[in-house]
């Protein structure tokens, strides 16, 4: 019998936890209970970075992590943090189901783990305390919290804002007191993270669509028979399909709830933002590790 641990940093009722439980159930059922997966939610086993290390060391077998966390383990994942490489949600799913994904699934094999499937984590957009963002000029002089990633820092710089790294847990108070003028995230940050209580403008410039990946350690893979591996792979793909509906619903609800909280939502023209970050894209096109993959994504 194979027993595995699956770690998810998000809460129990987050769509990803819901479908990962379904994934675990499906695997158990189809392998007649020979492969059982125990789900740990809420980040109880550690941050995404820690869990990836645990994956390399055999304490955890499967985990859902953001591509942003993976880029510190393998630079090829930086490509997903680049702004405006996907047109919209449909384009995202189309490209991610194609050869791009299978390339990156295999990319980390040397690091001890491999990809099973991807999840959409939504489009990231700016939210601010004092004014809606219509053009990149509106970002001028604004201190914007970004995630700890060089790509995100460069992106905000190119758009004209002032990137300000802060731990996620401090964003609420920092917005409230004006330490920062805004941040960027998908709409659930406004509702579940309650940032919408203080940031009253959400501008859907949709600059990034950083996918999450479900990754499994090589060791765990090797513990299973070929047939079981196939079942796991298939169940993972089913999870992605089930997730899309749940996640879209969650995003819709988050936007509606945000409006209810008094957040004004606007849709700026994306073109000027796209032009502003073009130098970053060009720079990565010349990069040896990321270039070919980027070419593949953008040219499709």
């Amino acid at each position: 019998d194979v027993r595995m641990r699956l770690a998810n940093a998000l809460s129990k009722d987050h769509p990803s936890s819901v479908v990962l439980q379904q994934f675990a159930d499906e695997v158990r059922e189809k392998t007649d209970g020979e492969v059982s997966i125990r789900l740990f939610v809420n980040g109880v086993l550690g941050s995404e970075r820690e869990v990836l290390e645990q994956l390399q060391n055999g304490a955890v077998d499967i985990t859902r992590v953001s591509a942003a966390s993976l880029e510190n383990f393998d630079p090829v994942f930086r490509v997903f943090s680049l702004p405006y490489i996907f047109e919209d949600e449909d384009d995202f799913y189309e490209k991610m189901r194609g050869p791009v994904a299978s390339t990156v699934y295999q990319a980390t094999k040397d690091d001890g783990f491999q990809g099973l499937t991807f999840f959409d984590s939504g489009a990231r957009s700016f939210y601010t305390i004092s004014k809606p963002i219509e053009t990149p000029q509106d970002l001028q002089g604004l201190k914007l919290r970004v995630i700890n990633s060089n790509t995100s820092i460069r992106m905000v710089e190119l758009m004209g804002g002032t990137p300000t790294p802060l731990p996620y847990g401090e964003v609420y108070t920092a917005l409230q007191s004006g330490v920062i003028d805004g941040a960027e995230n998908n709409p659930t940050a406004l509702t579940i993270g309650r940032h919408g209580e203080v940031a009253k403008y959400y501008s859907l410039d949709q600059h990034q669509r950083i996918p999450d990946f479900l990754v499994i350690s090589n060791r765990a893979m090797e513990k299973m028979t070929g047939e079981q591996q196939e079942i796991v792979r298939e169940a993972a793909v089913h999870a992605t399909e089930a997730y899309r509906g749940l996640w879209d619903e969650a995003v819709r609800k988050a936007l509606a709830d945000a409006r209810e909280m008094g957040v004004e939502v606007n849709r700026p023209d994306k073109e000027p933002f796209r032009r502003a970050v073009q130098p970053l894209i060009d720079e990565y096109r010349r990069d040896d590790t990321v270039g070919p993959l980027l070419e593949q994504i953008v040219s499709d």
Partner: peptide, 15 residues
């Protein structure tokens, strides 16, 4: 062991 295995893992900001 942790030091060795984390040699290829880069810190996000200063790399």
């Amino acid at each position: 062991k942790a030091s060795l295995s984390a040699l290829t893992q880069m810190s996000p900001i200063m790399q």
